[in-house]
């Protein structure tokens, strides 16, 4: 019975993490920030290291570093002519170096690749609440964000502020990565964000269908991945990502 409860806890936490990540991922992909997202996820490392040193939950350390990096990226991009990938690349190398120094070896592996089985009830509650919040805020933001991506000047002409939509988006994205760290780890969190969206894009004929497919794919690949990992005793992160890759390959045949 204890195992069943743990399995449910893992499943629910996984599905909620995927819910927020796959919706955000749709915008990451159309904003051509897929690699940016991947790299941003590694910024979490030194935060994890510091949190471990101070004996607090690594998620909070990760979240702090991610939010600061997201805000820093936004600010530097606004003030200079540097593209976001160059700025995040700089943050990334700095933080990776710091991370390797700060995070103890055995914990490093866990932060990079996650450990669903360490999830406790309290973690699950935090994940459910935070993911629901991220999902709702992203939905609320989607109108402004889409128009800001499609035509920034038109967005401004009806009173939207594209730079603030972008900041809000980056912060939500940073939070969603922090949530995924325990679950599937910082390396694969980027993939959980992008994979549902790239598969969905191949099926989509409209923005609405794109977002819906992306979320559905995110949920199915997480569900299947966790089932496989439990059945065969694989680590869940890689199982989720490999399932996603299979989805992507199938989606290539449907490209419209």
């Amino acid at each position: 019975m204890a195992i069943d409860n743990q399995f449910l806890l893992i499943l629910i936490s996984g599905l909620f993490t995927a819910l927020a990540a796959s919706l955000l991922g749709a915008f990451i992909v159309v904003k051509r920030m897929a690699l940016v997202g991947d790299v941003l996820s590694h910024v979490a490392l030194p935060g994890i290291g510091l949190a471990l040193m101070l004996s607090i939950d690594p998620v909070y350390g990760a979240a702090t570093f991610l939010l600061v990096a997201a805000f820093g990226t936004w600010l530097i991009e606004k003030k200079t002519a540097l593209p976001p990938e160059a700025i995040i690349g700089t943050f990334f190398t700095a933080t990776l170096a710091l991370g390797v120094i700060l995070v103890p070896n055995e914990e490093l592996f866990e932060s990079l690749f996650g450990n669903l089985f360490a999830i406790k009830k309290f973690d699950a509650v935090i994940i459910i609440m935070a993911s629901s919040m991220i999902f709702s805020l992203t939905m609320l933001l989607s109108r402004r964000l889409t128009l800001s991506i499609a035509a920034p000047d038109l967005a401004k002409s009806i009173g939207f502020r594209p730079d603030f939509s972008y900041l809000a988006f980056l912060l939500l994205f940073a939070l969603s990565i922090a949530l995924g760290i325990k679950l599937i780890g910082s390396v694969l969190m980027g993939a959980l964000t992008i994979l549902p969206a790239v598969s969905a894009r191949n099926f989509a004929w409209s923005l609405k269908s794109f977002l819906i497919f992306s979320v559905i794919f995110g949920l199915i690949m997480t569900f299947t991945g966790i089932l496989i990992s439990t059945a065969f005793n694989f680590p869940p992160g890689p199982a989720i990502i490999l399932t996603g890759i299979i989805f992507f390959i199938i989606s290539l045949f449907f490209k419209n």
């Binding site: 109108r143 889409t146 128009l147 991506i149 499609a150 004929w205 409209s206 923005l207 609405k208």
Partner: peptide, 28 residues
């Protein structure tokens, strides 16, 4: 405001209807 053109963003699968609805509060 009518701009000269829109930047072509093939990765964004926006329909004409959705493009209009971006102006309304009810996108979905």
């Amino acid at each position: 405001y009518v701009p000269q053109k829109l930047m072509e963003k093939a990765e964004l699968p926006l329909t004409v209807k959705e493009f209009f609805l971006l102006k309304s509060k009810n996108l979905f």
